[in-house]
Amino acid sequence: VTLFVALYDYEARTEDDLSFHKGEKFQILNSSEGDWWEARSLTTGETGYIPSNYVAPV
């Protein structure tokens, strides 16, 4: 499993987005949709879409 870490804070803009804080780690569930990836936060357990340019591989 490839994990990603948040480089910046992000505040959700829609109900499908996932808010997160810098340093939070994610498991990517689906990265085939372009710039927005479906991810699960390893901190909160919540699932939603995150901007791929806000995260980097651990």
Rank of each mutant, 00 (worst) to 15 (best):
E15T: 14
K25L: 14
S41N: 14
S31A: 12
G34E: 13
E38I: 15
I28P: 03
T44M: 02
I50S: 00
Y8R: 10
T43H: 10
N53G: 12
D16A: 15
E11A: 12
L18V: 06
G45L: 08
H21Q: 13
I28S: 02
G23W: 05
G45F: 07
Y8N: 07
V58K: 04
A6K: 00
S32C: 06
V55I: 12
T14W: 15
R40V: 10
F4M: 11
L42D: 05
L42T: 08
Y54P: 01
D9V: 03
S52E: 04
S31D: 14
E46R: 14
S32D: 13
S31E: 09
W36K: 15
T43C: 07
I28L: 07
P51A: 04
R40H: 08
R40Q: 12
S19V: 03
E24T: 08
A56Q: 13
V58F: 14
E33R: 12
N53F: 08
V58P: 04
D17C: 06
L29D: 05
L7N: 03
S32E: 13
L18W: 04
K22V: 12
W37S: 02
A39V: 12
V55M: 09
E15D: 13
D16V: 14
G34I: 10
G48P: 00
V58A: 10
E15Q: 11
S19A: 07
V1R: 11
T44F: 02
R40T: 15
W37R: 02
T14G: 15
L42S: 05
N30S: 14
E38N: 08
P57Y: 06
L7R: 04
Y54M: 12
N53W: 14
I28C: 04
N53H: 13
G45Y: 09
Y49V: 08
L29E: 05
V58W: 15
A39I: 03
W36C: 06
E38C: 07
A12H: 06
E33I: 11
V5D: 02
R13N: 10
R13K: 12
A12Q: 06
V5S: 04
R40M: 13
L3Q: 09
A12N: 05
G45W: 08
L42N: 05
E46K: 15
P57L: 11
P57V: 09
F26W: 01
K25V: 13
A56N: 06
E24I: 02
L7V: 07
F26L: 09
V1M: 14
T43L: 15
P51H: 09
T44L: 02
T43P: 02
S31W: 11
A39S: 03
S31I: 12
L29T: 08
L3G: 04
T14P: 03
G45Q: 07
E15K: 15
N30H: 09
D17P: 02
I50Y: 00
D16F: 15
I28K: 04
E33V: 13
S32N: 11
E24C: 05
P51V: 02
K22F: 06
V1L: 15
F4D: 00
F20P: 00
Y10K: 03
V55W: 01
K25C: 07
P57A: 10
A39E: 01
S52A: 13
D35V: 09
G23F: 04
N30Y: 07
R40P: 00
S19R: 04
V55H: 01
Q27M: 11
I50M: 02
G34K: 15
Y49F: 11
G34T: 12
E11T: 13
D9W: 04
K25T: 14
Q27G: 03
S52V: 09
W37L: 08
E24D: 15
F26I: 05
Y49H: 07
S19W: 03
P57K: 09
W36Y: 13
W36H: 07
E33M: 14
L18E: 01
S32G: 15
D9Q: 05
K25F: 10
E38F: 15
G48Q: 01
A39M: 05
I50V: 09
R13Y: 08
F26Q: 00
N53S: 14
V55S: 01
V58E: 12
Q27W: 15
H21N: 12
A39F: 03
L3D: 06
S52C: 07
D35A: 10
E11G: 06
S52Y: 09
R13P: 08
P51L: 09
D9C: 05
Y54E: 01
K25H: 13
L18Q: 03
D35R: 09
R13A: 13
P51Q: 06
W36D: 03
L29F: 08
V58R: 03
L29Y: 07
F4L: 04
S41L: 08
D35Q: 11
Y10C: 04
T44K: 04
F4I: 03
Y49T: 08
S41R: 13
A39Y: 02
D17L: 09
I50K: 00
T44S: 14
L29P: 05
Y10D: 00
Y54Q: 06
T43G: 06
R40S: 07
L29A: 06
P57Q: 09
L3F: 09
S19Q: 05
E38D: 05
S31V: 13
H21K: 14
N30Q: 08
Q27R: 08
L18D: 00
D16H: 14
A56D: 05
H21M: 14
I50D: 01
N30D: 12
K22I: 09
F20R: 00
L3M: 10
V55Y: 01
G45H: 07
T44Y: 03
V55L: 14
F26N: 00
L29I: 13
T43S: 13
W36E: 05
G45E: 05
V58I: 14
A12G: 13
G48K: 02
L29V: 08
T47E: 09
E11L: 11
E11D: 12
Y10Q: 01
W37A: 03
W37G: 01
F4H: 07
D16Q: 12
Y49M: 13
A12V: 02
E15H: 11
N53Q: 11
D17Y: 13
V1I: 15
N30E: 08
T2R: 13
E24N: 06
E46D: 08
S31N: 15
D16E: 15
G48V: 02
D17H: 15
G23N: 06
Y8I: 07
L18F: 09
E33Q: 13
V5A: 05
S19D: 05
G45A: 05
W36L: 08
G23R: 02
W37Y: 09
N30G: 10
T47G: 04
D17I: 11
I50C: 01
Y10R: 04
L42Y: 08
S52R: 11
V58T: 08
A56G: 09
D17N: 10
L42C: 07
A6P: 00
A39D: 00
Y54R: 07
T47N: 05
D16K: 14
V1S: 11
F26C: 01
Y54D: 02
T47V: 13
D9A: 07
E11Q: 11
V58Q: 08
S31G: 09
T14L: 11
F26V: 04
T2Y: 10
Y10P: 00
F20E: 00
D17W: 11
G23H: 05
F26G: 00
E38L: 15
V5W: 06
V1F: 12
A56P: 01
L29G: 04
L7S: 02
P51G: 03
A12E: 04
L3K: 05
K22M: 08
K25I: 13
D9N: 09
T14K: 14
H21A: 13
S31R: 15
V5P: 00
P57H: 06
R40I: 11
D35T: 15
T43Q: 10
E46A: 12
S32A: 12
S41Y: 03
L42E: 08
Y8P: 00
G34D: 15
L29K: 05
I28E: 01
S32V: 11
D16S: 13
I50A: 01
E15S: 11
G45N: 09
E46M: 15
R13Q: 12
A56H: 10
K22D: 02
T2V: 13
A12C: 05
W37Q: 03
V55K: 01
S52N: 06
V1C: 07
G23T: 02
S19I: 02
Y49R: 14
F26A: 00
V1Q: 13
T14F: 15
S19T: 11
F4N: 01
W36P: 06
Y54T: 05
